[in-house]
Amino acid sequence: MADVLMAGSSSADFTRRQHLAKTFEAYRADLDAGNERRERLIILSRATTQLSKKLIFHLHRGATASPSARAKNIKEGRQKENEIWTNFIKIRDDLVAGEDHESFWRWTREVTPGMEEYIEASSFLHYLDHGSLITLEEVQRNLSDKETGEPLVVVTPEDYILGMSDLTGELMRYATNGQWSFAPLQLNKVYGSRYAEGNTALSTGDHESPLSGRSYPLNTTVLPCAAHQADLADFDSIPPSRLNSHMARKLAKKQEETTRSLQKIESVCYALRLRLIEYADRPDILRQMAKRALDDAAAAGQDKDGERGDD
């Protein structure tokens, strides 16, 4: 084989090979620089994900505490958020350091996973703090340079929608943590009316329940929370033609998850409503039952997951 190869190698070819070696050295440097930057960004993105998850757990721990403890919890949450924010500064700095002012878009695949987690965490924080859904503009403002106002990374509508879809999971957990206050029942009232009335049902909330728990701070937040969830559960209404296929797939998957948590809550509410009629004058017993119903629902959910796993 070597002889055959030699047959083709004239002196001109030798020069060509040397010439090629030189140009390919340049290509190699180009690719290497890209690979190194990719590695750095992936590490930063992972760190962002980790910190964001910690922030979410932190918020859940404090969400059902007394008002003063909650305020402290949120304040600490803000500090943690700021810590995560410095990661985005690092990401921006790395991109700017590129010789031709590297475009964010070239590296978005590396940056996005951490950013999604951050959006989830900060939107949850925003919700606990203000009781409202964060807007895309606010997310983008959070992810901007505080002095120049230039975006550190770019948040697209898709990032936002997927992040809000993730948020529903946190809200559901938050709501079920408030089980002792019969939050689930209220959640479901909002859902139920939504289903009954279609898109306009969003605007309904119910305060007639004797268990609306004026004494529990949580209840006041759970209602709008449920409304958001009902609305987000309705992401199906976003026409698929406006999404790219990748995005549509991702959203469909998240929707499944949202629907599952929604059903969990609904079955709890069903049990609660029945008991409510029976034991309307015995709040302590009701509280017990709510807890049991939730545990059952959680167990049923696990069974279901188990079956799915066996398939």
Binding site: A196, S203, G205, R273
Partner: peptide, 18 residues
């Protein structure tokens, strides 16, 4: 679940609208 739906009130109208 629609039969469980309460009569709508305007109590929390503002947040959902936004």
């Amino acid at each position: 679940m629609a039969d469980l739906a309460p009569v709508p009130t305007s109590a929390s109208a503002s947040a959902p609208t936004s």
